[in-house]
Design a protein around this nucleic acid. Structure first.
Lengths: 213, 213
DNA sequence: TTCTTGTCACCTAGGTGTTAATAT
DNA sequence: ATATTAACACCTAGGTGACAAGAA
């Protein structure tokens, strides 16, 4: 069983139309889950065959999709691991990086900017080292999880200003951009408390306040 | 084949009598090697059955050793990995932490302060997943490497002031303690250049100047 | 006395959006 | 025009020895 972390926050982004930055060097995203099996991977599938552009404050189709790179798979670096170990902590894919560099040699996920993608999480059961499983090779038990609210458009710079604001509000590394004038500060803190409580209610085990998305 | 990284630096420490800090939370050390096989581990064996103290500027025996904890093994987090992958980079054990907390539950290496230890590196060949190897269980090929110059005394605070100075000079995280008065600065830089060249000569692939030991 | 602990300022390392410059 | 890049200030996260206080 798989549960998404910070579903409310994902939903907020999703309602605005989530965007994910891609760079030549590779930028990180962060998903977090709990699960009950042996090996975890993520990949990204195109949501449609279209190319988009942001005009007049909304995303509009701008022609057919560019050719997609063969999809790479990101294996969670803690794999393989026992189900108990996976369950012990909130699993985070914070080593996963997205790039628009078609020639990337760092093993990052290659995406086309201005195209829509759906992340998928694959849970692979690795059989114990008994002969038949390896030789016959039929014991590979997959299971794929898709959280619809994690779909996004790859961009090289944010287009929707409200997405930018939500990132700044929810990502601790962007704390430097939260404007906290002596006047607004109290209101700021209060609204943060609110959103934090919302997150905590949905996932009580996470003690820290902010999530990287 | 295994080669030690920054042998000259290790030798300098060794001549002074290397000390390694242990804390309740765990402190890191850093070894670095090249090798040619599949899985890497480190452990620490007591060098003798004695307890030491630092008096009159030297280490003297101060009785019989305290009882040693059963030795834990630190498995390199990149394990298992192909020989080619290991060879590609300088291997660094910078996740290894030493602690004097007998009740440690973080998987750190437990050592007794004021006791002498010798680190050992074990290279384990993992057979391909064919039945007989696993079932008969006879294919485990070990190979152990010991670098005599990496032996040390575990301490909770440095005793030999020259060890402290060498740490400050060679560990980038301690750069804040390098005194660089406008006057001494040039001499400082020059002496660093010297030692760096010494390191580089012994290991030309390492481009950065300082090593964590 | 001797050894250990906890806190601190000072670093490294790297993740953020911003911004101006550049590419297409 | 539109999309991308590269340098930047500002953060998080965590590794250093110094130092004072505490423990044995």
């Amino acid at each position: 069983r798989l549960i998404i972390e910070s579903k409310q926050l994902w939903d907020e982004f999703d309602q605005l139309g989530t965007e994910m930055i891609v760079t030549k060097a590779g930028r990180t995203t962060k998903y977090a889950q709990i699960l009950a099996t042996y090996m975890l991977m993520v990949d990204f599938v195109p949501l449609d065959d279209k190319r988009y552009r942001y005009a007049f404050y909304s995303w509009v189709v701008a022609g057919k999709a560019d050719p997609h790179c063969p999809g790479r798979v990101h294996v969670h670096p803690d794999s393989p691991q026992s189900g108990a170990s996976w369950m012990k902590n909130v699993v985070s894919f914070d080593k996963l990086k997205l790039t628009n560099n078609l020639l990337d040699e760092n093993g990052h996920i290659i995406l086309n900017s201005m195209h829509r993608y759906q992340p998928r999480i694959h849970c692979v059961y690795l059989p114990p080292p008994k002969c038949e499983d390896f030789i016959i090779g039929q014991t590979q038990n997959f299971r794929t999880f898709i959280f619809q609210e994690t779909k996004f458009i790859a961009v090289t710079a944010y287009q929707n200003h409200r997405i930018t604001q939500l990132k700044i509000a929810s990502n601790p590394f962007a704390k430097g951009f939260r404007d906290c004038d002596p006047e607004d500060c109290v209101a700021e803190v209060l609204s943060h408390l609110n959103s934090n409580q919302r997150l905590l209610r949905s996932h009580p085990r996470n003690g820290t306040s902010n999530t990287n998305i």
